[in-house]
């Protein structure tokens, strides 16, 4: 329990620092803005109660907002993403259900399952975020392109980070 708390707190702080100091300065053709900090919400334990999930996501979003001068934008996208998480997990759960206390890792659930889970979650988050940012539908398709490109890039970062945090054990 304590270990879980420490791990998630550390993840929370490190991801914010990395997002604010490194990723926010990444500029890739003006179309790609990776938001790796959603990794925190993706990795919350499966048993996290709904209210805690929402509150933590809100906290994560508002912390990023604090540094980006975008009050409410990331918070709103994060809360939306957290809201969708239980429904998505129910939809793509393995046939026999999740084991109690199992961590969300590629090693446990397989790369296909993880990509589906993370991909859909990231897309939902980026979709909400980028449309809130432009706040209009007039440039619908150019925004959609940014959503898709950024989602792919974030997904790539999430998979890499996942392997970094949970290295493959050799026999």
């Amino acid at each position: 329990m304590i270990e879980l708390l420490v791990k998630n707190t550390l993840r929370f702080v490190i991801l914010i620092i990395f997002q604010v100091l490194v990723l926010n300065n990444v500029e890739l053709g003006g179309f790609i803005n990776p938001y790796l900090y959603v990794f925190f919400i993706l990795m919350l334990p499966l048993e996290t109660p709904g209210w805690l999930l929402l509150l933590l996501s809100f906290l994560m979003g508002i912390s990023i907002d604090l540094f980006e001068n975008t009050a409410g934008m990331h918070a709103s996208a994060c809360v939306f993403m957290a809201f969708c998480r239980p429904y998505l997990l129910r939809l793509i759960s393995p046939r026999e259900g999740f084991d109690r206390g199992s961590k969300i890792t590629i090693q446990k659930f397989g790369i296909n399952w993880f990509l589906t889970y993370a991909g859909i979650m990231i897309f939902l988050h980026h979709f909400a975020l980028f449309y809130l940012e432009v706040f209009r539908f007039s440039s619908f398709f150019s925004t959609l392109l940014r959503v898709i490109l950024s989602s792919v890039f974030t997904l790539l970062l999430v998979v890499i980070t996942q392997y970094l945090f949970n290295p493959v054990k050799k026999n």
């Binding site: 209210w51 929402l54 979003g61 508002i62 975008t70 918070a75």
Partner: peptide, 19 residues
């Protein structure tokens, strides 16, 4: 769960519009 979502979401949107 739904109510908390609605509360947090409206809080975010309120902050966003105010900003």
């Amino acid at each position: 769960f739904v109510f908390l979502f609605l509360i947090l979401q409206s809080l975010s949107v309120y902050l966003l519009i105010q900003n």
